[in-house]
């Protein structure tokens, strides 16, 4: 546990180049400083929240994540991971309140990818019909994953957290991250291409 009291007097050697940890410590005294953390991490959290929960909810999720983080900043422990993992952990909890909405969103993507393969010209230049179909299969597969497996898979694939960081974010063991990830990937591959998981992708340009 960081003893926030010391932040009262430990100014920065360079006033602005504060590490996230220092920003959090010093925000115990100057709450407004926590805004720096927002500016540093908002874009990646927003993108992740939007991908998972969609418009209208992602904005609330991001705001709530930072406000929860702010309220809990005294308990932030840099030994247990960096601020980014901590924030993604809070965001994941917030997203979990909207898991039905997420599933609906994924199923909608799955449906649209199956029905619109032939008539999306802009997209076709970039993505082959096969890959487009794979996208739909993936969305459907993600919707069927357990929440825990989906959290791990998407945290690692979409937020760029390492296994260790994902473990810190979700407050689970790294071994659990590995086993959930393996299970999630196995299911996704099965949905995408059966025994040959790379078939769909390698057929695309």
């Amino acid at each position: 546990m960081v003893d926030g009291g010391v932040a009262v007097v430990t100014g920065s050697a360079e006033p602005g180049k504060l590490s996230d940890t220092r920003v959090i410590e010093e925000s115990l005294v100057e709450p407004g400083l926590f805004g720096l953390l927002y500016d540093r991490h908002e874009a990646s959290l927003y993108r992740y929240a939007y991908r998972r929960a969609g418009p209208g909810i992602a904005e609330d999720l991001v705001a709530e994540t930072f406000l929860v983080a702010f309220a809990r900043r005294r308990h932030f422990d840099p030994v247990c991971g960096d601020a980014r993992a901590w924030l993604f952990g809070i965001l994941t909890k917030e997203i979990s309140h909207h898991h039905r909405r997420e599933k609906t969103r994924l199923r909608a993507v799955a449906r649209s990818c199956q029905t619109e393969v032939a008539n999306d010209s802009a997209d076709q230049a970039l993505v082959s019909a096969d890959a487009r179909a794979a996208r739909g299969l993936l969305a459907a597969a993600l919707a069927k994953l357990s929440r825990g497996d989906r959290d791990v898979l998407l945290l690692i694939a979409w937020s760029g957290l390492s296994y260790t960081e994902a473990a810190q974010a979700l407050d689970i063991a790294v071994g659990t991250v590995r086993s959930r990830l393996n299970r999630a990937r196995r299911k996704v591959r099965a949905a995408l291409g059966g025994d040959d998981p790379t078939r769909v992708i390698e057929e695309s340009p």
């Binding site: 991908r51 904005e59 996208r135 694939a157 990937r185 998981p197």
Partner: peptide, 25 residues
Amino acid sequence: NDQWILDDLGSVLDPPTEHAPAEVR
């Protein structure tokens, strides 16, 4: 290779703007 297809799906689900609206900030 499933990272590629996950990235592809992610890009389809991406928000229209890089940043959350100013009201969030």
